[in-house]
Amino acid sequence: MRIITDTDRTENLGPCAATIGCFDGVHRGHRYLINQVCKVAAERGLHSAIVTFPVHPRQVMQTDYQPQLLSCLHQKTDLISQLDADYCFMLPFTRELSQLSAREFMQVLQKHYHIQVLVIGYDHRFGHNRTEGFEDYCRYGQELGMEVIRAKALVEDGVSISSSHIRSLLKQGAVHEANRCLGYEYYLDGTVTDGYKVGRKLGFPTANLLPACPEKLIPAEGVYAVYTYVQGIRYAGMLNIGHRPTVNNGSDLSIEVNILDFSENIYRKQMRIEFIAFIRSEQRFDSLEQLTVQLKADREQVRKLLQMPVR
């Protein structure tokens, strides 16, 4: 996989079969689509390519738009680099580009990226106002000498695997189902920051995560079984996302993990949290004693879910 960010570096590339999209999360549905592109390219003796954007198009059009991404740019790039396509073209999305008709946009793809075959995602639309559809793309392709193919969707249990579906699952706390659609464990990266240290007083010291990507979706508030990575080493953990109503945390959202059987000082270190299972919703307790009893029960459930010795 060669990732290309400059259209001037495409001059000597051969003709391609390609698809285009945001590819947020680079989930199993995306990989199913990209595998179709690779198959088409192999059948026609072409290079295989992905065209995507370094910034979500809606952020360019709406400066106040707050996306809830499944993957930030560096995460998306890492995931794409693991795929079998020959090239990934990072196409800067601009207001000028957004004003192009679908036909004009296809001309850009043909001129700058040598795309001879365009594989369209089953629900993908492009061009100004996104008013044109697959039949229009086919007609423009015939005029331009570009073959246009409609891709098959990856459907499981009657539902097409898509970024919007995965976001919906994460907002419900359904991380197990979301992970199945993603093909990997959903994760948050960031830095361990200072907290209120209430957990330490209760016997459950926590590492508070400051996400590296503020635009990345935070799953539903509640308690989760997670794996935590610190300096490349994996640890089991119990994560809480929420406003900690028992200790009157106010409007601040906390992302804090109690790393099991761990006592090192990791303040200011980098940390990754992988979501494995949802335990329960956040709730308010009448006393810290009641909260402590519940945390002990949660911890034992986490141990069982992660197949660790119960203590």
Rank of each mutant, 00 (worst) to 15 (best):
I259Y: 05
S101M: 07
R2M: 12
L169W: 08
V155G: 10
S281F: 06
I149D: 03
D286W: 03
R303H: 02
I149Y: 07
Q231C: 10
I20L: 08
P15Y: 06
R167Y: 04
R244L: 06
E185W: 00
Q99C: 14
C22W: 07
Y113R: 06
A151I: 13
I50P: 04
Q36P: 03
V175T: 08
A102V: 03
E11F: 14
A49W: 01
E185Q: 15
A174H: 15
P57N: 09
S164F: 05
A178C: 12
I266L: 08
T206K: 05
L118P: 02
Q110D: 13
V293N: 12
M308Y: 08
L69P: 12
D189G: 02
T63F: 12
R139I: 04
Y184T: 01
K111E: 15
C38L: 03
V60R: 10
V230M: 13
C138F: 07
L182D: 02
G237E: 13
G141N: 09
L305K: 10
Y187Q: 12
L79I: 02
T292L: 03
T206P: 07
H112G: 04
L144K: 12
Y229I: 08
Y229R: 15
I120V: 15
D86A: 10
K171S: 12
L239T: 00
L33Y: 12
V257P: 03
Y267V: 01
S160Y: 04
R44W: 10
N265S: 14
L291E: 14
Q294L: 09
H128P: 08
H27C: 10
P67M: 02
Y224F: 00
